[in-house]
Design a protein around this nucleic acid. Sequence first.
DNA 1: CCAAATGCAAGAGCGGTGCTCTCGTTATGG
DNA 2: CCATAACGAGAGCACCGCTCTTGCATTTGG
Lengths: 219, 219
Amino acid sequence: MRAEMTEEIKAVARRHLATDGANLSLRAVARDMGMASSAVYRYFASRDDLLTALIIEAYDAVGEAAERAAAAARDAGFADQLVAVGHAVREWALAEPHQWALIYGSPVPGYQAPQDTIGPATRVIFQIAAIVRDAYAAGRIGPQPEISGRYREELAAVAGQFGPDIPPRLVGAAIAAFIQLCGAVSAELFGQLNKSVDEDRRGFLEFQMRGAAAFIGLI
Amino acid sequence: MRAEMTEEIKAVARRHLATDGANLSLRAVARDMGMASSAVYRYFASRDDLLTALIIEAYDAVGEAAERAAAAARDAGFADQLVAVGHAVREWALAEPHQWALIYGSPVPGYQAPQDTIGPATRVIFQIAAIVRDAYAAGRIGPQPEISGRYREELAAVAGQFGPDIPPRLVGAAIAAFIQLCGAVSAELFGQLNKSVDEDRRGFLEFQMRGAAAFIGLI
DNA sequence: CCAAATGCAAGAGCGGTGCTCTCGTTATGG
DNA sequence: CCATAACGAGAGCACCGCTCTTGCATTTGG
């Protein structure tokens, strides 16, 4: 029943987050549950702890959305898989803008992300990397110029996480695609696109993802 | 002397922003200036108004950094100009992370950006667009596939702001470069790159900008 | 030259916040 | 059966944004 209680607190907090915005008030959550604010501290040591729980859930939610989209587009081309992931992530973000801001926006002041968050945080980028890896294994990636320098070495070190014998440049391109996706969604949500792209924002996102696919070399 | 006072308040607020973080406290600013918190309201109608002033200054600062970098790289190739702008923006963001978060991070809850901010907000993207426009005028952009659909029409409508007879796809590519830059810098600052790109983050940014230049078609 | 008007700063106060501490109550397990 | 632990409530602390009133200074106008 303790787990039940923490789950209910998280649910109310998520609702508060969706309506009121980022400044989640622990007292307001407690009021909504008809209990004293001090009682919430039996379940979460601090407001930051509650935020951490919500952050992990948000990472998992967007990661699952990306994975489901990729699975649904498995029969399509690899570029289309990437675009599908992009649309899924964007649509999740549009549905839960404050959760998106929580994980991809400016970090909450004084908040230090604990270790628990880095696992769920990698689900989206791993999904993109998986598409790239599968495309590479299927020989569906055109020849690309290699890169050099220190960044190449770093990418080579990371490449092992994604699969054997992945060219470092591909890892860099996968990261670039993820950055492009995050940047595009954040720009749309945070108002950077106002007065610039107002009509076809879905088309805007698709354009970004097609560009990312081209940069990866997906054919 | 009133202008002098508002300037000093902004300076102290900027310092507080740099040290304490995003949750700028009007009372703390007033304490630092040795005056009552209510006195600050003689100069700024609300905390949001003070934030707006800081936001405009931040947009101007990063915009000026981008313009200076572009001017300094005028003799280099167009791709190098783009990369120079990227490095300048990144370095400004590294020096003023909280100001970056203020303008490109999650919007402050309940804060509505007034009209005054949209002018300064466009300086960086305009600088990127200017590079693309000049490169196009100089014939230094390779042939690129056109796009179609509703997003093309929207880009065509925006293209007029940048110059006559600019292909819509080029405008889209310029916006994509800006998105890539913002996404990369935000990812670095907001911790998205931790455990993934830790060594050569400057090389990471350069890789993104080179990719953006390639997508634009700069030769 | 004096009075009126204006600008400024201070203080008190309101409702809100995160968080801590203490104190009853309840339930559980030896 | 009773000790122990978990729990909820309440008071309280220091802080926040913001408003209102008051007093002081300066400046302006007659």
